[in-house]
Amino acid sequence: MKRDELEKLLKEKARILRRDIVKMIGEAGSGHPGGSLSAADVVATLYFYHMRHNPKDPSWPERDRFVLSKGHACPVLYAALAESGYFEKNILWTLRKLGSILQGHPDMRKVPGIEISSGSLGQGLAAANGMALTARLTNKDYKVYVMIGDGESQEGEIWEASMFAAHYKLDNLVAILDYNKLQIDGSICEVMDIKPVVDKWRAFGWHVFEIDGHDIMQIVDTLKAADEIRGKPSMIVANTIKGKGVSFMENVCGFHGKAPNKEQVEIALRELS
């Protein structure tokens, strides 16, 4: 596929994910739109271009793994799984309801395509380490992609896991930091700054890329480059905008964990049409 066609395709996929995110959180009446929207371009690129996976066979041993360590952003993952064909799209509108497979945070035992249950921050990167080790131990060439949050980076376990991945030279592991600069209590730099985050990861022994996390072709090219790094894990610091794509949610801390009301859903869907 030509680059401009690919970009067009992935932009369209990201738009669909964003619409589904807004709609499903609106239907649920609760959830985390801000960090789901900020991650949409990276997740779209992974699921609709970069990753090797098979929605008809979710447990295919050779598949690439995606771990959403910032589990509260699961609407973006649920949307990507539904759009890929892991389950029927109308299930999205059952999000957070009693009996739904779509729990408030991802449950690997309920949803086909979820690699590990997450939601308690800091734990997904460690789990990704384990999956990357298994690939090595079983001579498989799959890759493990894990997305962590910037607020999540304040958890100690992230840095324990970071040390482990570098120590064991897990070059089949690629982490993406969704660096949207906001957390529940305010901006990252006011609450508990993680700067200089690129230097930190580099000092921990990772190969670090820094990109615009909404520039599709930069995401495409960087994921490819990260796959080729040998001898160390890769970190892609993706600078993003919380609430990206919905004007009244962009850079608004309040939409970290608040659902849009009916009117706001309509406005948002119009903007994303």
């Binding site: 793994r65 771990v67 690997m108 690699e115 590990i116 734990q123 997904g124 990167l125 460690a126 789990a127 990704a128 380490n129 384990g130 999956m131 990357a132 080790l133 298994t134 690939a135 376990e157 896991a161 482990f164």
Partner: peptide, 9 residues
């Protein structure tokens, strides 16, 4: 967490 990832795979 690493143990969980190993087990999950």
């Amino acid at each position: 967490g690493t143990a969980a990832g190993l087990a999950a795979s």
